[in-house]
Design a protein around this nucleic acid. Structure first.
Lengths: 160, 160
DNA sequence: TAATAACCTAGTAAATTAGTATGTAATTAT
DNA sequence: ATAATTACATACTAATTTACTAGGTTATTA
């Protein structure tokens, strides 16, 4: 389990999709301008997210990306795993057989820790975030008064 | 909170110190040969660990490094924070004021998540690892084995 | 038919990680 | 005292990863 800004980009982008799940697909151009990440880089990240079934793309005008599963079935660990190819570069490759035992103990301990971390992040799903009262507020207002919000927050063009 | 192999190196090295805390200081040369990390790189990592008070160095023959605090006062989060300078490169720098509110919501959510992750790793201290039955076993017969292992597994092509 | 936006690939710039080289300073053992 | 050992320090380089740029193609909608 690795955790870098790359993973964060993916997670925040997925949060974005989760928040606007009801409003139709979200374009990468949108996320790009709003979160300040290059479009092409986002495309690369989303290629991986799509391969993992976490998102699905909709082509053409009015298209974009939407979640590939219900938000309660997408964990933070899923997202990070999808974009960060976690290269295990311990000497023993998880077989715990390097250095004839003793020294590899630390790898064993690290594996334990890593697993606990994974479990922790695997328990946190996107659905948790849309429960946030602040998110609900914004997400709901977009349902009813989409156009007004659109002028209030120009970066995002809300799909109609 | 960032989590890279650099952080892992630091954590496993600290685990090593914790395991052998009673046997006197552990040399970086030892950790270097055993964990396959270059000596100089370890020195750089330990410079940071020392600055954070997580370890203290003992010079001269028979010297090395030992824990700077009791193992139950050193958390995984402490170690990772010491070596990974966590540059916050969200646009809003944690002030949650970028993109006029709405869009920054994801940063807010990420901050929440990041905080939870920190708390999680901050609750795991080195003392936990030495409780591991396997570790206890090896830790006890350690004094004699250290030098033997050094000759059994000489450094590969690591700096002199 | 034109615009949109996903989808795809190759190349490059920037940043970080990891390692090399070469010291000095403190301490211990001979 | 002297030599060996080990921390401590700095500058530089190699390797890897991250992020971006630039050029496409396909599918879909208006």
């Amino acid at each position: 389990m690795k955790l870098s800004t790359k993973g964060r980009y993916a997670v925040t982008a997925m949060m974005d999709l989760a928040i606007h799940d009801r409003d139709g697909p979200v374009t990468l151009a949108d996320i790009s301008s709003c979160q300040g990440i290059s479009l092409s880089y986002l495309e690369q990240l989303f290629a991986r997210l799509r391969q993992s079934g976490l998102v699905e793309g909709v082509r053409g005008p009015g298209g974009g990306y939407r979640l590939g599963k219900p938000s309660n079935q997408i964990s933070v660990a899923d997202i990070i795993s999808a974009v960060d190819e976690t290269i295990d570069n311990t000497r023993c490759k998880g077989n715990l057989d390097c250095n004839k035992g003793e020294r590899c103990l630390t790898h064993h301990l690290w594996n334990d820790l890593s697993e606990r971390l994974y479990d922790f992040l695997n328990d946190i799903t996107l659905s948790e975030f849309i429960k946030d009262p602040e998110v609900r507020k914004i997400s709901q207002r977009q349902d009813s008064t989409a156009s007004r919000i659109a002028t209030m927050f120009p970066p995002r063009s809300i799909a109609s």
